[in-house]
Amino acid sequence: LEARLEAADLFKKVVEAIKDLVQHCNFDCNDSGIALQAMDNSHVALVSMMLTADTFTPFRCDRNIPLGIDLTSLTKVLRAAQSSDILTIKSEDAPDVVNLVFEGKDQDRISEYDLKLMDIDQEHLGIPDTEYAATASMPAADFKRICSDLLLISEAVSIECTKEGITFKAEGDIGNGSVTLRQHSDLENSDKNVDISLTEPVALSFSLKYLTGFCKATGLSNQVRLCLSNDVPLMVEYALANNSYLRFYLAPKIGD
């Protein structure tokens, strides 16, 4: 494997966004890119990352290799990379370590780290391609704000999506709160759009602790997309350049 990123920033942010949800995971490398799928310990949430080969310049991977990595250790190594550094990830066949090289833009500093790998026997879930009943795209910062505000009211949020908009409702000991985002196109700045497509109304409850955790990915993308169907897990997607993505799946709470 040899994969070079123009800026370490992307990889630093991805790892930062998932390290509190999953501790040990395999980075599955093959000629289409670097993928990761891992569940949290309680098996309620799942993270699915794809960094396509086109995300790297260049990308080369001659055979499929899983790189079993402790994300706490990887975070320690990535601290040594500045956001603007060129990052190269390298590994041999049947590796004991993954090699990370950080180069300053002006090429006067090269840092090189070897991170020990681990054998991880991970349960892999097959996630079918799903036609969701409702899809809502919104500014990622707005979603983060809504989740963190409602977490102060309750540990759970009900998300209701209708043609009129998407509503987040929390009921807690101190009272209730709700936030509605209406569909809206900002002609000057499409990053501010709220776009809803719906085949049937959806109402589901989720843990805000998990949702606020997913929001650690906010810096990766201006927009976030929520995909919902009744009685299936929510998908929260942060789309990245070159068809790469960071997706979180969250099982709904059981109703009354």
């Binding site: 879930l125 099982a251 709904p252 709470k253 059981i254």
Partner: peptide, 14 residues
């Protein structure tokens, strides 16, 4: 209301 489903109920192990 405090109980959460787990993902295996929805997705098969691949």
């Amino acid at each position: 209301q405090n109980h959460q489903h787990i993902l295996q109920g929805f997705y098969e192990a691949a």
